[in-house]
Amino acid sequence: MAGDRAASIDPDALSWYEATARQRVTALVDPGSFREFLGPTERRMSPHLPLFDLPRAFDDGIVIGRADIAGTPVLLAAQEGRFMGGAFGEVHGGKLVGLLRAALDLKPRAVLILFDTGGVRLQEANAGETAIAEAMRAIVDVRAAGIPVVGLIGGRAGCYGGGGLIAGTCSRLAVSEGGRISVSGPEVIETNKGAEEFDSRDRALVWRTMGGKHRRLTGGADAFCADTVAAFRQAAVALIDRAPAFDLAGLEAEQARLAARIARFGDCRDATEVWARLGVNDPATVPGMDTAAFEAIVARVGEADHDAR
């Protein structure tokens, strides 16, 4: 049965959704090229969690380091959604911010962020919120230095809260069907606005509102991948090469695009209405489509591809 375990790091077979952060990193980059910074042996753990009698992780739930992808040097960070929902704490956030700042000196071809997070860790909220702000600031600096920052989203925890904000500052995003991108999570919306507004137990509703297909169709993400590490690798390589410039014209175009979007879709009550207005003939069938059929739809929808970001 040893062969099965070997198969579990085969990029073609390994499900991104199922994989751990370390499995994703190992299978994503060129074999043997990953060098970790502040790895688990250094035990940089959360100073706050013991106060709450909570277990800590030796890497505080994030793996950072350098590697080659298709022969090109990159820096990358991967959040571990299985540890505290991939949430940002002081050390976790510090590692991401440090990696981004190091990019200014190391000048990699790109920085990859493998998001898998519910947002900020409640037990160390101030440090987490600060880290979100610092990470966004650092991404701006990195992008201004001409280094693309590419987010990969397809983990179990999705990309929520501050993670959703950071994703918004990236040059490009790749997402899978299981991936979700948003700020407030389904339960938070339901708690504040009621189940009539958003029923968090209706998982089909959650995914068609926040899931990968919706984000891709509306241009919130720039690539849609099958749920394998190989597909994410292919998307990452392609997106690095297609990263937009980071300048005032780009930001103004993005602002205009978002304003147009709210004007066009602001009164829609369901994602299927948005898709219908985008020109999708039979919106109800979108969630059931396989990757190839969905790509064909995306190719026909003008909204999905733009450099305004």
């Binding site: 069907e177 299981g178 209706d202 998982r203 089909a204 995914w207 068609r208 059931g288």
Partner: peptide, 18 residues
């Protein structure tokens, strides 16, 4: 499971994540 069924299995909304 939907794929295994050739699209014949139609899971209720609460079990879907698509």
């Amino acid at each position: 499971l939907v794929h295994w069924s050739g699209g014949l299995y139609e899971p209720p909304a609460r079990f879907r994540n698509w």
